[in-house]
Protein backbone atom coordinates (compact mmCIF):
# COMPACT_ATOMS: atom_id res chain seq x y z
CA UNK A 1 0.00 0.00 0.00
CA UNK A 2 0.91 3.60 0.11
CA UNK A 3 3.93 4.76 -1.72
CA UNK A 4 5.38 1.33 -1.60
CA UNK A 5 2.61 -0.13 -3.71
CA UNK A 6 3.25 2.24 -6.56
CA UNK A 7 4.35 0.72 -9.71
CA UNK A 8 7.94 1.79 -9.43
CA UNK A 9 9.53 1.28 -12.78
CA UNK A 10 11.89 4.18 -12.60
CA UNK A 11 14.73 4.67 -10.23
CA UNK A 12 12.78 6.70 -7.81
CA UNK A 13 14.48 6.91 -4.52
CA UNK A 14 11.98 4.89 -2.60
CA UNK A 15 13.98 5.14 0.56
CA UNK A 16 13.75 8.89 0.59
CA UNK A 17 10.06 8.93 -0.13
CA UNK A 18 9.34 6.40 2.55
CA UNK A 19 11.36 8.29 5.04
CA UNK A 20 9.51 11.41 4.13
CA UNK A 21 6.25 9.58 4.44
CA UNK A 22 7.10 8.19 7.80
CA UNK A 23 8.07 11.61 9.02
CA UNK A 24 4.93 13.17 7.73
CA UNK A 25 2.40 10.52 8.43
CA UNK A 26 3.78 9.70 11.83
CA UNK A 27 4.92 6.35 13.04
CA UNK A 28 1.71 4.41 13.18
CA UNK A 29 0.39 4.99 9.72
CA UNK A 30 3.77 4.59 8.13
CA UNK A 31 4.67 1.49 10.04
CA UNK A 32 1.36 0.05 9.00
CA UNK A 33 1.90 1.14 5.43
CA UNK A 34 5.37 -0.27 5.18
CA UNK A 35 4.62 -3.48 6.93
CA UNK A 36 1.59 -4.20 4.84
CA UNK A 37 3.56 -4.16 1.65
CA UNK A 38 5.58 -7.18 2.65
CA UNK A 39 2.51 -9.29 3.18
CA UNK A 40 2.20 -11.85 0.43
CA UNK A 41 -1.16 -12.82 -1.04
CA UNK A 42 -3.43 -10.31 0.59
CA UNK A 43 -6.27 -12.79 0.97
CA UNK A 44 -5.18 -14.44 4.15
CA UNK A 45 -4.13 -11.25 5.79
CA UNK A 46 -7.30 -9.54 4.78
CA UNK A 47 -9.55 -12.30 5.92
CA UNK A 48 -7.69 -12.22 9.18
CA UNK A 49 -8.17 -8.51 9.43
CA UNK A 50 -11.81 -8.84 8.60
CA UNK A 51 -12.29 -11.45 11.25
CA UNK A 52 -10.49 -9.28 13.70
CA UNK A 53 -12.74 -6.46 12.72
CA UNK A 54 -15.77 -8.55 13.26
CA UNK A 55 -14.40 -9.89 16.47
CA UNK A 56 -13.92 -6.41 17.70
CA UNK A 57 -17.25 -5.07 16.63
CA UNK A 58 -19.38 -8.09 17.28
CA UNK A 59 -22.42 -8.32 15.14
CA UNK A 60 -22.00 -5.58 12.72
CA UNK A 61 -24.76 -3.49 11.37
CA UNK A 62 -23.94 -4.73 7.94
CA UNK A 63 -27.33 -5.78 7.06
CA UNK A 64 -28.77 -2.57 7.99
CA UNK A 65 -26.25 -0.83 5.79
CA UNK A 66 -26.66 -3.24 2.97
CA UNK A 67 -30.37 -2.96 3.27
CA UNK A 68 -30.84 -6.59 3.95
CA UNK A 69 -33.80 -8.10 5.56
CA UNK A 70 -34.14 -10.01 8.71
CA UNK A 71 -37.87 -9.73 8.91
CA UNK A 72 -40.69 -10.92 6.80
CA UNK A 73 -42.60 -8.94 4.34
CA UNK A 74 -41.69 -7.49 1.07
CA UNK A 75 -41.68 -4.02 -0.25
CA UNK A 76 -39.43 -1.27 0.73
CA UNK A 77 -39.77 -0.47 4.34
CA UNK A 78 -37.00 1.80 5.37
CA UNK A 79 -34.75 0.51 8.04
CA UNK A 80 -31.86 2.68 9.10
CA UNK A 81 -29.97 3.69 6.04
CA UNK A 82 -31.11 0.55 4.33
CA UNK A 83 -34.34 -1.03 3.40
CA UNK A 84 -36.03 -4.30 3.96
CA UNK A 85 -36.30 -6.80 1.15
CA UNK A 86 -37.15 -10.48 1.38
CA UNK A 87 -35.74 -12.94 3.84
CA UNK A 88 -33.65 -15.08 1.53
CA UNK A 89 -31.38 -12.20 0.73
CA UNK A 90 -29.58 -12.17 4.02
CA UNK A 91 -25.92 -11.80 3.07
CA UNK A 92 -24.93 -13.28 6.34
CA UNK A 93 -26.36 -16.52 5.17
CA UNK A 94 -24.77 -16.33 1.81
CA UNK A 95 -21.47 -15.16 3.18
CA UNK A 96 -21.51 -17.83 5.80
CA UNK A 97 -22.55 -15.82 8.79
CA UNK A 98 -21.07 -12.53 7.79
CA UNK A 99 -17.48 -13.56 7.36
CA UNK A 100 -15.39 -11.88 4.74
CA UNK A 101 -14.36 -8.37 4.10
CA UNK A 102 -16.39 -5.29 4.70
CA UNK A 103 -15.59 -1.93 3.25
CA UNK A 104 -17.28 1.42 3.71
CA UNK A 105 -16.29 4.53 1.78
CA UNK A 106 -17.98 7.86 1.28
CA UNK A 107 -17.60 10.75 -1.13
CA UNK A 108 -19.38 14.08 -1.53
CA UNK A 109 -20.22 15.12 -5.04
CA UNK A 110 -21.28 18.56 -6.16
CA UNK A 111 -24.10 17.34 -8.45
CA UNK A 112 -27.82 16.78 -7.99
CA UNK A 113 -28.65 13.58 -6.19
CA UNK A 114 -31.07 12.29 -8.82
CA UNK A 115 -28.47 12.62 -11.56
CA UNK A 116 -25.95 10.58 -9.58
CA UNK A 117 -28.53 7.99 -8.69
CA UNK A 118 -29.61 7.59 -12.30
CA UNK A 119 -26.04 7.20 -13.52
CA UNK A 120 -25.24 4.55 -10.95
CA UNK A 121 -28.51 2.68 -11.35
CA UNK A 122 -27.58 2.11 -14.95
CA UNK A 123 -25.05 -0.58 -14.01
CA UNK A 124 -23.56 -0.57 -17.51
CA UNK A 125 -21.98 2.77 -16.50
CA UNK A 126 -20.06 1.34 -13.57
CA UNK A 127 -16.98 0.19 -15.54
CA UNK A 128 -16.35 3.79 -16.65
CA UNK A 129 -15.09 4.54 -13.18
CA UNK A 130 -14.58 1.14 -11.55
CA UNK A 131 -11.28 0.13 -13.03
CA UNK A 132 -11.42 -3.51 -12.05
CA UNK A 133 -14.74 -4.04 -13.82
CA UNK A 134 -14.76 -4.98 -17.46
CA UNK A 135 -18.49 -4.91 -18.02
CA UNK A 136 -21.83 -5.12 -16.34
CA UNK A 137 -24.84 -6.14 -18.34
CA UNK A 138 -28.45 -6.57 -17.39
CA UNK A 139 -29.70 -10.13 -17.85
CA UNK A 140 -33.29 -9.69 -16.89
CA UNK A 141 -35.12 -7.36 -14.60
CA UNK A 142 -33.13 -7.15 -11.39
CA UNK A 143 -30.38 -9.58 -12.46
CA UNK A 144 -27.09 -8.39 -13.85
CA UNK A 145 -23.95 -10.10 -15.08
CA UNK A 146 -20.63 -8.75 -13.84
CA UNK A 147 -17.26 -9.35 -15.48
CA UNK A 148 -14.16 -8.21 -13.69
CA UNK A 149 -10.56 -8.14 -14.82
CA UNK A 150 -8.59 -10.60 -12.80
CA UNK A 151 -4.83 -10.88 -12.73
CA UNK A 152 -3.02 -12.71 -15.53
CA UNK A 153 -5.87 -12.06 -17.96
CA UNK A 154 -8.12 -14.26 -15.93
CA UNK A 155 -11.55 -12.76 -15.74
CA UNK A 156 -13.93 -13.34 -12.89
CA UNK A 157 -17.64 -13.39 -13.61
CA UNK A 158 -20.74 -13.56 -11.51
CA UNK A 159 -24.41 -12.77 -11.51
CA UNK A 160 -25.96 -10.45 -9.04
CA UNK A 161 -29.43 -9.34 -8.29
CA UNK A 162 -30.85 -6.22 -6.82
CA UNK A 163 -32.12 -7.02 -3.40
CA UNK A 164 -33.09 -3.58 -2.48
CA UNK A 165 -33.95 -0.40 -4.25
CA UNK A 166 -35.46 2.86 -3.17
CA UNK A 167 -35.27 5.49 -5.83
CA UNK A 168 -32.89 8.34 -5.03
CA UNK A 169 -31.88 6.64 -1.84
CA UNK A 170 -30.30 3.24 -2.00
CA UNK A 171 -29.43 0.38 -4.30
CA UNK A 172 -28.43 -2.93 -2.74
CA UNK A 173 -27.20 -5.98 -4.61
CA UNK A 174 -25.98 -9.44 -3.91
CA UNK A 175 -24.38 -12.24 -5.90
CA UNK A 176 -26.57 -15.20 -6.74
CA UNK A 177 -26.14 -18.46 -4.92
CA UNK A 178 -23.38 -20.58 -6.35
CA UNK A 179 -21.45 -17.67 -7.87
CA UNK A 180 -17.67 -17.82 -7.93
CA UNK A 181 -17.72 -14.88 -5.59
CA UNK A 182 -19.91 -14.14 -2.67
CA UNK A 183 -20.51 -10.48 -2.57
CA UNK A 184 -23.09 -8.01 -1.47
CA UNK A 185 -23.08 -4.28 -1.57
CA UNK A 186 -25.08 -1.14 -1.41
CA UNK A 187 -24.80 2.45 -2.41
CA UNK A 188 -26.62 5.11 -0.45
CA UNK A 189 -27.35 8.63 -1.65
CA UNK A 190 -28.12 11.54 0.63
CA UNK A 191 -28.21 15.32 0.54
CA UNK A 192 -25.38 17.01 2.33
CA UNK A 193 -24.42 20.60 3.01
CA UNK A 194 -21.67 20.36 0.40
CA UNK A 195 -23.43 18.31 -2.24
CA UNK A 196 -24.64 14.76 -2.51
CA UNK A 197 -23.11 12.19 -0.24
CA UNK A 198 -22.55 8.80 -1.81
CA UNK A 199 -21.68 5.94 0.51
CA UNK A 200 -20.72 2.48 -0.63
CA UNK A 201 -20.76 -0.62 1.51
CA UNK A 202 -19.22 -3.70 0.09
CA UNK A 203 -18.87 -7.11 1.54
CA UNK A 204 -17.24 -10.05 -0.14
CA UNK A 205 -15.88 -13.38 0.78
CA UNK A 206 -13.26 -14.81 -1.51
CA UNK A 207 -13.23 -18.59 -1.80
CA UNK A 208 -10.03 -20.44 -1.05
CA UNK A 209 -7.43 -21.57 -3.54
CA UNK A 210 -6.12 -19.94 -6.66
CA UNK A 211 -9.37 -18.32 -7.61
CA UNK A 212 -9.67 -16.87 -4.16
CA UNK A 213 -6.29 -15.27 -4.49
CA UNK A 214 -7.29 -13.86 -7.85
CA UNK A 215 -10.44 -12.39 -6.41
CA UNK A 216 -8.60 -10.97 -3.46
CA UNK A 217 -6.26 -9.28 -5.89
CA UNK A 218 -9.19 -7.97 -7.83
CA UNK A 219 -10.28 -5.83 -4.96
CA UNK A 220 -6.73 -4.87 -4.26
CA UNK A 221 -4.53 -5.47 -1.31
CA UNK A 222 -6.41 -2.69 0.29
CA UNK A 223 -10.06 -3.01 -0.60
CA UNK A 224 -10.85 0.28 1.09
CA UNK A 225 -8.46 2.10 -1.16
CA UNK A 226 -9.81 0.36 -4.24
CA UNK A 227 -13.35 1.46 -3.48
CA UNK A 228 -12.12 4.91 -2.55
CA UNK A 229 -10.43 5.27 -5.93
CA UNK A 230 -13.60 4.08 -7.66
CA UNK A 231 -15.62 6.68 -5.84
CA UNK A 232 -13.05 9.35 -6.59
CA UNK A 233 -13.29 8.60 -10.29
CA UNK A 234 -17.08 8.66 -10.04
CA UNK A 235 -16.85 12.13 -8.52
CA UNK A 236 -14.35 13.33 -11.11
CA UNK A 237 -16.51 12.04 -13.93
CA UNK A 238 -19.69 13.60 -12.57
CA UNK A 239 -18.20 16.93 -11.48
CA UNK A 240 -15.49 17.54 -14.04
CA UNK A 241 -16.87 15.41 -16.86
CA UNK A 242 -13.61 13.51 -17.20
CA UNK A 243 -11.05 11.63 -15.17
CA UNK A 244 -7.73 13.46 -14.87
CA UNK A 245 -4.77 11.64 -16.28
CA UNK A 246 -1.14 12.01 -17.23
CA UNK A 247 -0.97 8.77 -19.13
CA UNK A 248 0.49 9.46 -22.54
CA UNK A 249 2.13 12.77 -21.73
CA UNK A 250 5.77 13.35 -22.67
CA UNK A 251 8.70 13.02 -20.29
CA UNK A 252 12.45 12.76 -20.53
CA UNK A 253 12.33 9.12 -19.50
CA UNK A 254 13.75 7.04 -22.28
CA UNK A 255 12.30 3.64 -21.58
CA UNK A 256 11.07 3.66 -18.05
CA UNK A 257 7.44 4.69 -17.84
CA UNK A 258 6.17 6.98 -15.16
CA UNK A 259 5.37 5.32 -11.88
CA UNK A 260 2.15 7.19 -11.47
CA UNK A 261 -0.99 8.02 -13.30
CA UNK A 262 -4.37 6.70 -12.45
CA UNK A 263 -4.29 4.21 -9.65
CA UNK A 264 -5.94 0.94 -10.52
Amino acid sequence: MAVAAMNYEGRVNVGRVERWLSMVAGGALAAYALKRRDKPGGAVALAGAALLYRGATGHCDLYQQLGINRAHGNGAREFGTGVIADRGSDTREQLGGGRGIHVEESVTINRPLSELYRFWRNFENLPTFMNHLESVSTREEGISHWVAKGPARMSVEWDARIINEVENKVIGWQSLDGSTISTAGSVNFGEDAHGTRVTVHLQYNPPGGKLGAAIAKLFGEEPNQTIREDLRRFKQLMEAGEIPTTQGQPSGRKRRPSYTGTKA
Binding site: Q225, E229, K235, E239, A240, P244, T245, T262
Partner: peptide
Protein backbone atom coordinates in the same frame (compact mmCIF):
# COMPACT_ATOMS: atom_id res chain seq x y z
CA UNK B 1 -4.88 22.90 -12.40
CA UNK B 2 -8.54 23.34 -11.46
CA UNK B 3 -11.69 21.64 -12.72
CA UNK B 4 -13.96 24.63 -12.11
CA UNK B 5 -16.87 22.56 -10.83
CA UNK B 6 -16.01 21.02 -7.47
CA UNK B 7 -16.94 22.55 -4.13
CA UNK B 8 -13.48 24.12 -3.84
CA UNK B 9 -13.39 25.64 -7.31
CA UNK B 10 -16.92 26.99 -6.74
CA UNK B 11 -15.61 28.74 -3.64
CA UNK B 12 -12.63 30.31 -5.39
CA UNK B 13 -10.25 27.84 -3.72
CA UNK B 14 -8.77 26.77 -7.04
CA UNK B 15 -5.49 25.48 -5.65
CA UNK B 16 -7.54 23.09 -3.52
CA UNK B 17 -9.42 21.59 -6.49
CA UNK B 18 -10.69 18.11 -5.70
CA UNK B 19 -10.54 16.69 -9.21
CA UNK B 20 -7.24 17.57 -10.84
CA UNK B 21 -4.74 15.30 -9.14
CA UNK B 22 -4.48 11.87 -10.78
CA UNK B 23 -2.32 10.82 -7.84
CA UNK B 24 -4.65 12.10 -5.17
CA UNK B 25 -4.15 8.99 -3.07
CA UNK B 26 -0.47 9.81 -2.75
CA UNK B 27 -1.10 13.34 -1.51
CA UNK B 28 -3.68 11.93 0.89
CA UNK B 29 -1.00 9.81 2.53
CA UNK B 30 1.04 12.95 3.13
Amino acid sequence: IACGHCFFCMHDLYSCCDNSNPNAWMAEKF
